[in-house]
Amino acid sequence: MRTVPPSPEDDPGTRAGVVLALRALGLGDALTGVPALRGLRRAFPGAHLVLAGPSGPGGLLRRRGVVDDVLPVDGVAAIAEDAVVAAAHEHPAVLPPGWPVVAAVNLHGRGPQSALALRGLLDERGADGARLLGHACPAAGLDGPAWSDDVAEVERWASLVRATTGAPCGPEDLRLDAAAWPTPLAPERTAPGPAEAARPGRTVVLHPGAASGSRRWPASCWTALAAALVAGGRDVVLTGSAAEADVTAEVAVRARAVVARSGPTSCVVVDTAGRCDLEQLAGLLAGARALVCGDTGVAHLATALATPSVLLFGPTSPAAWGPAVDHHLHPVLWPAPSAAYRGDPHGAAVDPVLARTTVDDVLGALAALPARRAA
């Protein structure tokens, strides 16, 4: 249930106003911004903290108490300068008319579009002395810390909040409570045999998808990995969006065929692509033995839940987007020729560095993970 702002007449939190943070990006971006959001909570303890961003990731953070409400804004491709004001008009229950915005915080980018979008909100809804916080952006009249490309994503936004508010925050704030998530497994998209549930604690979650081809490990590798895990006594659950269901279905069918040729087994390969919402995905990860995925949002969810993971990087250095805490739980496979290597993160073909990672590499990294629970 959404947190409803209290009455301005009788609640001291209301008198402290609204703090709105813009981060209108995807799941991984939302999760890497959690330390900054928690810093804002500490900097403005009486304020109503609103995240302007997509309702899916934002809703997950709202239900976990990271923010009080979500103003639906989608800026994954680009953000319009009137996007925040338009969303405020469209969703008056989130920012009721007359409620003062005391701070607008740009956790979205360096500007100018994102900074101007927040400047527009303050022009219309800002309290006296309202603050626009973000990296320096002269086009929006924003004086803040200089942007640097050479900083990890988590630290980029946490350091911004520390510098502009003085509130403490850092990588240790990434974690979400792993308890009490919804039932994780949904029915399979196709059911070639008896529907069997994977068993928590002995399940390895495989997430083959990524936003671009250059960050997707080949389907043949995922198939071989799934079959090897089942042969080793693990259940396998494949996850992905509805748009990735064809890939997960291919991996599931081929892996089951390999397993069937090896003889009877009690282990299963379950395909949940397009059938798990973010809460169910989190529930699945919270109980899993481990996750294997590429450089994508699910990796950050595993970090937040302290679920062991093996991360397959290619065009992008893990220095920017790799795990910021619990490095012993999240080994990164990145066989780049040097630390300076950079590929095309938006390319159509698999990155050559990612292609060098083998199934045996992944199996070895999984075997070396610290024990989480009895399998």
Rank of each mutant, 00 (worst) to 15 (best):
T203W: 12
T203G: 13
V204Y: 06
V205I: 07
V205H: 11
V205T: 00
L206W: 02
L206R: 00
L206C: 13
H207T: 10
H207P: 05
H207A: 15
H207Y: 11
H207D: 08
P208K: 10
P208G: 11
P208E: 09
G209V: 04
G209Q: 05
G209P: 13
G209R: 00
S212T: 15
S212K: 06
S214A: 15
S214G: 07
R215C: 12
R215E: 14
R216D: 00
R216C: 08
R216T: 01
R216H: 00
W217N: 09
W217V: 09
P218N: 00
A219R: 09
A219H: 06
S220V: 13
C221I: 05
W222L: 09
W222I: 01
T223F: 04
T223H: 03
A224K: 07
L225E: 11
L225W: 02
L225Y: 04
A226C: 08
A226W: 06
A226D: 10
A227T: 00
A227C: 14
A227S: 12
A228Q: 12
A228P: 09
A228E: 04
V230Y: 07
V230C: 03
V230G: 04
A231N: 03
A231D: 11
A231H: 13
A231I: 01
A231E: 08
A231S: 14
G232F: 06
G232H: 12
G232N: 13
G232D: 15
G232W: 07
G232Y: 06
G233R: 12
G233I: 07
R234L: 08
R234Q: 09
D235T: 06
D235S: 10
V236I: 08
V237D: 02
V237F: 07
V237E: 13
L238I: 03
L238Q: 08
L238A: 14
L238N: 07
T239H: 06
T239E: 01
G240K: 01
G240L: 09
G240A: 06
S241T: 14
S241F: 07
S241I: 14
A242H: 05
A242K: 03
A242M: 10
A242V: 12
A242E: 13
A243H: 13
A243G: 15
E244N: 05
E244R: 06
E244P: 10
A245C: 11
D246G: 09
D246M: 03
V247L: 15
V247D: 07
V247M: 09
V247T: 08
T248I: 10
T248E: 08
T248W: 10
A249V: 05
A249G: 13
